[in-house]
């Protein structure tokens, strides 16, 4: 088992080096300084900006700096006097305040739906649930966000006569701020992810339930409940956990649209603002951190997998 873990760890090193390389190259193909300054800038301005960004150094040195702590102490281009690190530490919490609860909610609802469908496999309930999932998946999630805000915030507030969910914004000084600012985004986020996850979980559960050992267990006369709990669900859980772990970093990125639309100052909306404003230090720093997060969860998933999956454990 340890051999497996070490092998996985080693494999992640070149991947990590590669990500930073890709990020660096992608951000430098089109000279970020010119992109920022426009074509009317003087050579002097150009050189100055280049030096401010550390872009005058050799590629390798820049790479080294990025590897060694993401170059987070560089000043953002637009938010005068704030470093990438400050921006990052400020943006993490709003993102998590939504991503965390949304993940839990999505997983619970999706699992329940999947179980229900799998249990009634081939019956009308299953077909309706899965048809619903396909229909839901076929609508752009931007539409969910727009209509979710309209009906969940504007309309609801109008009907009730007072503000339940804020239409936009994020202010932790309010009492019940989480309900006011985050609950609606969480609900929307969950609503649009449930379809995908439910389909996936159902497929996993159905696959597990048709395996040979399950049939054997049934043949041995085990009760249906024990078969499901011990043989189907336990094995399906491995895939579920892996899936959850892998989606973790994507979740923070996946809610970019929600953050932008609800005016939540999280990592996604900060990154988009930076991209639109060609704020090079932020774009580079944030992308690198996103990638590193992924690697960390990747390793965690592998370790977890090794612990849980008997096939790996017994190796």
């Amino acid at each position: 088992m340890w051999q497996y873990v070490v092998r996985k760890l080693l494999w992640n090193i070149p991947v990590y080096l590669g990500i930073l390389l890709v990020v660096m190259v992608a951000l430098r193909v089109n000279d970020p300084v010119w992109a920022r300054l426009g074509k009317n800038a003087t050579q002097e301005q150009y050189e100055q900006t280049k030096e401010d960004l550390g872009l005058h150094e050799s590629f390798l040195r820049q790479y080294g700096r990025l590897l060694n702590g993401f170059d987070l102490d560089r000043y953002s281009w637009d938010k005068h006097g704030r470093t990438v690190r400050q921006e990052l530490s400020q943006a993490v919490w709003p993102s998590l305040a939504i991503a965390g609860p949304a993940l839990v909610l999505t997983t619970l609802v999706a699992l329940l739906t999947a179980l229900l469908a799998a249990f009634r496999r081939g019956r009308p309930l299953d077909r309706w649930l899965m048809a619903g999932a396909v229909v839901g998946m076929s609508i752009s999630y931007v539409v969910y966000v727009i209509l979710g805000q309209y009906f969940g915030a504007y309309k609801l507030n109008e009907w009730v006569g007072r503000e339940i969910f804020a239409i936009q914004g994020y202010d932790r000084s309010q009492p019940l701020w989480w309900v006011q600012y985050c609950l609606l985004p969480v609900l929307i986020n969950a609503a649009l992810a449930v379809g995908y996850d439910a389909r996936f979980y159902r497929a996993v559960i159905v696959e597990e339930s048709t395996r040979d050992h399950v049939r054997t267990a049934r043949a041995k006369g085990l009760s249906e409940r024990r078969v499901w709990l011990k043989h189907v669900l336990r094995n399906a859980m491995i895939s579920v956990i892996t899936h959850v772990m892998i989606t973790l970093p994507f979740l923070v990125a996946g809610q970019i649209v929600i953050e932008v639309y609800f005016g939540i100052p999280g990592m996604g909306s900060t990154l988009i603002t930076a991209i639109l404003g060609k704020d090079f230090p932020i774009v580079q720093g944030f992308t690198a951190v996103f990638a590193a997060l992924f690697i960390v969860t990747n390793i965690a998933t592998d370790v977890l997998y090794a612990v849980v999956d008997p096939r790996v454990r017994l190796q």
Binding site: A26, L27, I256, L271, I295
Partner: peptide
């Protein structure tokens, strides 16, 4: 490893 929306955005950048 880079979330694809982030990667897409960076590539558009």
């Amino acid at each position: 490893s880079v979330p694809y929306l982030v990667l897409l955005s960076v590539l558009v950048f």
